[in-house]
Simulated assay, not measured.
Amino acid sequence: MVRSPLTPQQRAAGRRLGAYLREARGDRKAADVAQAAAISPETLRKIETGRLATPAFTTVAALAAVLQIRLDDLARLCR
């Protein structure tokens, strides 16, 4: 199955999500947050920089749990 290219709106939502997660991480090391969320540090970096604009729900949910962010707050960013 071929994936359709992301729309400008989807890319913008991914950048907003990444910036929010980066801010929520604060001075915690990316490697520590990634390990706690059971994802790779590279995946976290890609999300935070907007290079991975549409991460899997389970990834977002794991990060939200580690960073103590409500999922509905994250959902609002992606509208």
Score class of each variant (00 low, 15 high):
3 R>H: 06
17 L>E: 00
2 V>S: 09
14 G>D: 12
46 K>H: 10
70 R>G: 15
46 K>F: 14
42 E>I: 04
52 L>T: 08
18 G>L: 14
54 T>Q: 15
44 L>S: 00
48 E>N: 03
24 A>H: 13
10 Q>N: 10
5 P>I: 07
58 T>V: 13
45 R>K: 15
13 A>C: 08
69 I>N: 09
12 A>K: 09
27 D>F: 14
78 C>W: 03
7 T>P: 07
61 A>S: 06
41 P>C: 02
60 V>W: 09
45 R>E: 02
8 P>R: 13
56 A>T: 08
43 T>M: 04
38 A>T: 00
5 P>Q: 11
31 A>I: 15
30 A>M: 07
43 T>V: 03
63 L>V: 01
38 A>V: 05
59 T>S: 10
68 Q>S: 10
24 A>V: 10
48 E>A: 12
65 A>G: 04
24 A>R: 08
26 G>L: 13
37 A>H: 02
14 G>Q: 11
38 A>P: 04
18 G>P: 07
72 D>M: 12
57 F>D: 15
4 S>W: 04
4 S>H: 08
5 P>C: 01
67 L>F: 12
75 A>R: 08
51 R>Y: 11
41 P>I: 02
4 S>A: 09
47 I>F: 08
49 T>W: 11
15 R>P: 08
39 I>M: 04
74 L>R: 04
18 G>V: 11
67 L>P: 03
61 A>I: 01
